[in-house]
Each structure stands twice: as structure tokens, then as C-alpha cells.
Nucleic acid binder design. Structure first.
Lengths: 351, 351
DNA sequence: TTGTAGGCGTTATCAG
DNA sequence: CTGATAACGCCTACAA
């Protein structure tokens, strides 16, 4: 019985650069060099090392690497919730861009609570996040302190707030609120129901609302409906707004598309035709807004753009020490079928 | 000018346990002990150490910790996209549960491509993920190999596949597909349009479709419409399905709620009344399904439950070496207003 | 172009 | 209960 020495490597558990050094007869430094495809290494030795790596199935220990380089290549994002497509879309864009640059995205949710935000921020930092992405301008003192103490770059998003405590990438919710209500006013609407989610946990909404309020004059009669930030909330607000016979709105302005969808369903339930009897506006431009019947007039927010830019800004900060600057992204009113001139009758009665 | 020595600590940059040891006059071992609130440490020294920690603002270096313990407390989730609320909801649940147990969630998206999945899996592992959560049963050979070589626990979700290569936590898409179509058949529908997203990138959909096909007999006439997995896709499929005058469906079965929403909008656009003229069914039970007009009959998937259980299973595996077992979660058909008996005329004509 | 040696901050194993 | 001290696996001057 012949017994030949197997050509296959017996796969001796290769655990670190040392083993590779041993296997190739080189030094750990050289191994490390090719691992970081850095500086001068002769082609031949590089090839040899790479072969050894392939054969052994070796891969870097990220913890050791992070410890040595003091870099984790991890960025944390803290959002109110993932269960809202607007945030999911945002994070999706971030993740894609980070992945391109070998950064990882780790996510934490707060449910909209500032204290939770602070807590989760600490979690993320303790976990090694090198930078943080947060939503809005409203953060606890504690949070800011933590970020400063650990000198972690923090970027606020969904807002543009050049004088805020944090650099921000986003849009100007205040003027967008104005633009939205003006569209309705320009169409001759007088009685407008404004629907929005919980103000306490969302400063973006609050800011939009300020814009709305400042843009309307005595000629208009606005009523405000704070409700749950989901389709059911929108429907409920609509029921409420439409239930007073004395004050019948000719238009709804919803500060989120999801709310508008609820209003739309409720209008359908009541056989109120949109837009001939009721105009409807949203905010966000979710994917269905262009497809609904009628199409939803809304403010298109550059959600993916924002994610992309946020990711890039942080990468530049981390990799090239480029300072974080606040940037204002453009957001546009997209007129679609859900808004029309206010019914004449209505106007007459008012005049 | 008097010059008193400040009582405040000058905040000498405390970077590690060593500094704390120095500051307290104890040894690093003791520091480490209280850090891990482990074994016996006298109350007094514990207090002293904790005070020092507080004063210095010290916090553990996660990389060093990970290197020493060989644990990163990080779990990776790989999903097709975040831009779909069903996945976002799922991840939301996972994140919450993981946070509870001091695990971090790092996310990667694939866009539905298997090769991307493999690549991203390697990324996550190289980044330190101790376990992986993936969607569906369809994974590249390469992927499985990587997971095995690195001996990383992998859990498949959104499916129940007890004999699959991976342990899975999810639901039985096959029987759910059957249940869905049967509901329509039982209501007397004969001509049914089945609408679904890209099959090539989604084995859950494919499995549902198999169930649908097997459950219908010669008495039914089904047509299949593969389309984009979004509201626009649903609307387009509806246009297509309704455009042939020879074959007018009395019902639509959508293998995702988003598609159903598109169909619903399209039906409204055509003044087709749901459900009196057209029945409509979805799959997922997204939050708006209960609020739409009419309410959407759908298969309610236990998305959050699934996230919770997946997270727990992995935590148990990692913390207590408890083997991953496949589990089948219950999913139910939720009858709502969008489905009704097929119009009699239709049935007559068939007979 | 390659090698040597020391350090990154924790944990853990031993003795005391 | 506490203290040395040796890993953990990688990177990086500094030398050669």
C-alpha cells in the first residue's frame, strides 16, 4: 500500500498573521503589509502571501485591527424608528454609501424619546461607533455632552440648521411648511385642516407647523389636528375634522404622506371626491404618492440624497479630517391630482 | 494673588484600566473585576473604583475587550432592502431585542442579489459579526461555505424550512399561498389575477406562488402577473390584467400588500368598486391594511414576532450554546372588506 | 524590500 | 479579596 504525502495543506488552523509568517517564511510585518496592500512589497512575495492567505482561509481579526489602529470603521445611526419607510429609505441610502467605503452601519432606535436617544448613543459609542447620525435638532444636554467628551462627530439630519449646536444635512422644514400651505392658499382654500404627528417627539414636524402658521393670514381659517403618525392616525384626524358641520374644510394639509393616505381613505369612505370636493396635500413623497388615485400633491423630500450626503460627509470627516458643514438640500413641491382650486361655492360664501 | 490647588481633578486623559489602577492605587485586575461586576470585590474598593470611573469619564475600549474575550456582541442582518416596510419592521424588532441584551445590530442590504449577499456576509463577518440573520432559503453555495468555514451561526427568516440547510424562523409560505387562494375560491371566484414581485430574487414569493397553483383546480382560471415589488408595480399589473376584454378577473390576489395597494388605486381609477365588482387580497398585513377603504383582506405575517424570536434564538445560541431550531410561526388570514362573493353574473356565465 | 520589537486596552490565570 | 503577568491579533516605527 503506497502512502503518498498529500499535496493538500492539512489546514492547520491559521489564526493570525504569525501563522502566515511561519507558513511563508516571511515576517509578520510583511504579511501585514500585503494585508493592507500598502507600501513596497515585491510582487513575488506579495503573491506568495496572497496564496497562503487563500489556502489557509485566513482573515483579519477585526477587533485586533481596531485596537491597533484605533479605528472601528463603524458609524452609528440613531433614528426614532425603522418602521417608517422614510427612515428606512434614509438608512438604506446611508448603508449603501458606507458599504462602498468599507464602513459598517450600526443602527439604534429611540421611539422618539430623547433620553432613550442619549442612552442608545452611549451604547453605540461604547460599541465602537466613530461617528453618529441623528435626526432633528432636539437633543438632550446630556447627549451633546457625551458626544463632546468622547469627541465623536455627530451629524444631524432631516433639518437644515446652520446655527444649531450640531452640523446638519437636511432641508428647511420651516419654509417647506410655508410653501405647502401657500400652495393651498393660492388655490383659494380658506378652511384648511392641518394634520400632523406627535409634536413632542418630532421637532421637524414642529418646525413645519411653524412655517404653516406664519404663512397664513386672517383670511384663512386653519384647524390643527395632532394625531398618531400612521395611516390610522390620518384617518382618525380626518374623521374629527370632518365631523363638525359648522366648519367643513375644503383642504387637508398633512405634514406626512402616511397621514395623507389615512385622510384619503377616510374621504373615500365618505364619498368625498378628491380633489373636487376636498383637496389633499402630503409631505415626503413616498413611493405610492405618484400612483395613488388621485396622485398626491406633496413636498418631495430628498431622503436618499440626504442619506448619501450624510454618509459621505462623515466618511470625509473620518478619513480626511474634513470638517462637517451644514448643507441645505432642495425639496420641491410636487403638484399632482389631489389638489385643485377650492370649490367656488365655498369662496362665495366667504366673500 | 492667592493660588490654591484646585480640588477638581485636572482630568488627566484616562485611557485605560491602567490609569484607573494608578489613580486608585489598585491593580488592573481589580479594576477589570468591577468593570465586569464580577466575582468578589470588597464593597469599599468597588465603590472607590466606581467613583474613579465616574470622575474620569472612563469607558471601556470595545476593540480591546473584543480582542481579549473573542466576542464582539454584534449580530449582522442581511436583507434585500430597507426600503420596504416589512423588512424595516422586522429589523426594528430585532434591534429592540438585541439592544436589550447588549448586542448591536449591523445591517447590510443586498438588493436581492445572491452574490451581493455573499459579499456582504463576508463584510459583516470581517467586521466582527458573531452571527447572521438572512432572508429566505435561497443562498449561494459560496455563502454557505463561508458561514461554515468561519463557523458563524446563521439563521434564515421569513420561511419555515425544517429540512433546509439553515435553521429557520418564519412561516410556511407554501400553505399560506394555498390558504389565500382558497379564500377567494371559496367566495366563488373563478377568474383570478395573481400579482407578485420578481420571482428570481425572492424565494418566499416563489413558494407562495407554488401554494397558490397547487390549490386551484380546473374550475378556476388564474393568470399570473410578475411585476415590480412596489405600489407602481401593483397598479401596472392591474392595468394589464384588466385590459383584456376576454378575460376579466373578478378577484386579485397580491402576494404583497404593497402590490394590493397599487391594484386598489388602479381599481379606483377605473371606477371599479371593491369588493362588489372586484375582490382584492394582499399578503403581509401592513399597518394601513386595516384602515384602507375598503379594509384589505390579507395574510397577517408575524413580522415583529419573527424579529423578536430570531434575535432571542441567536442570543441564546451565542450566550448559552443553545442550538438553533427551526420554528414555524403562525400567520393568519384576516378577512376584511376588500373581498366578497364573486358577482353572480360571473358565476352563471361560467356554469 | 524585509525583519524586529513593542504597544494598543482588556481579560484571565495564577499565585498571594 | 487582590495583584502580577501573560495572552488576544494586528500595526508600525525603527533597523537592517
Amino acid at each position: 500500500m503506497k502512502r503518498t504525502v498529500s499535496e493538500k495543506k492539512p489546514i492547520p488552523r491559521v489564526t493570525g498573521v504569525r501563522d502566515l509568517a511561519q507558513a511563508t517564511g516571511l515576517s509578520v510585518a510583511t504579511i501585514s503589509r500585503v494585508l493592507n496592500d500598502s507600501s513596497y512589497v515585491s510582487d513575488s512575495t506579495r503573491a506568495a502571501v496572497q496564496k497562503a492567505i487563500r489556502q489557509s482561509g485566513y482573515s483579519r481579526n477585526p477587533a485586533a485591527r481596531a485596537l491597533s489602529t484605533q479605528r472601528s470603521r463603524t458609524i452609528g445611526a440613531i433614528v426614532p424608528t425603522l418602521a417608517h419607510s422614510i427612515f428606512a429609505t434614509f438608512l438604506n441610502a446611508i448603508e449603501q454609501e458606507l458599504a462602498q467605503h468599507d464602513y459598517a452601519l450600526v443602527i439604534a432606535t429611540t421611539g422618539g424619546d430623547r433620553n432613550t436617544e442619549t442612552r442608545r448613543a452611549v451604547d453605540l459609542i461604547d460599541l465602537g461607533a466613530e461617528a453618529l447620525i441623528v435626526s432633528g435638532a432636539d437633543h438632550s444636554q446630556e447627549f451633546l455632552k457625551v458626544a463632546k467628551n468622547r469627541s465623536i462627530p455627530v451629524l444631524a439630519t432631516s433639518i437644515y440648521d446652520p446655527n444649531g449646536k450640531l452640523p446638519s444635512i437636511g432641508y428647511d422644514n420651516y419654509s417647506l411648511g410655508q410653501a405647502a400651505i401657500r400652495h393651498l392658499i393660492d388655490l383659494g382654500h380658506r378652511r384648511i385642516a392641518v394634520v400632523f404627528g406627535p409634536l413632542a417627539t418630532n421637532d421637524r414636524t414642529a418646525r413645519r407647523l411653524e412655517g404653516v402658521k406664519v404663512a397664513c393670514t386672517k383670511k384663512q381659517s386653519l384647524r390643527y389636528f395632532e394625531t398618531g403618525l400612521d395611516v390610522a392616525g390620518g384617518a382618525q384626524a380626518a374623521r374629527l375634522a370632518l365631523s363638525t358641520s359648522k366648519w367643513q374644510p375644503s383642504a387637508f394639509l398633512c405634514l406626512s404622506d402616511v397621514l395623507a393616505l389615512g385622510v384619503l381613505f377616510e374621504a373615500q369612505r365618505r364619498n368625498l371626491s378628491v380633489p373636487s370636493e376636498l383637496s389633499l396635500m402630503g409631505f415626503d413623497d413616498l413611493d405610492w404618492a405618484a400612483v395613488s388615485e388621485p396622485g398626491l400633491t406633496t413636498i418631495a423630500l430628498p431622503t436618499s440624497q440626504m442619506g448619501l450626503q450624510a454618509a459621505r460627509a462623515l466618511i470625509n470627516r473620518l478619513d480626511h479630517h474634513i470638517k462637517l458643514e451644514s448643507v441645505c438640500l432642495e425639496a420641491n413641491l410636487v403638484p399632482r391630482g389631489s389638489t385643485a382650486r377650492a370649490p367656488q361655492a365655498n369662496i362665495h360664501r366667504e366673500i
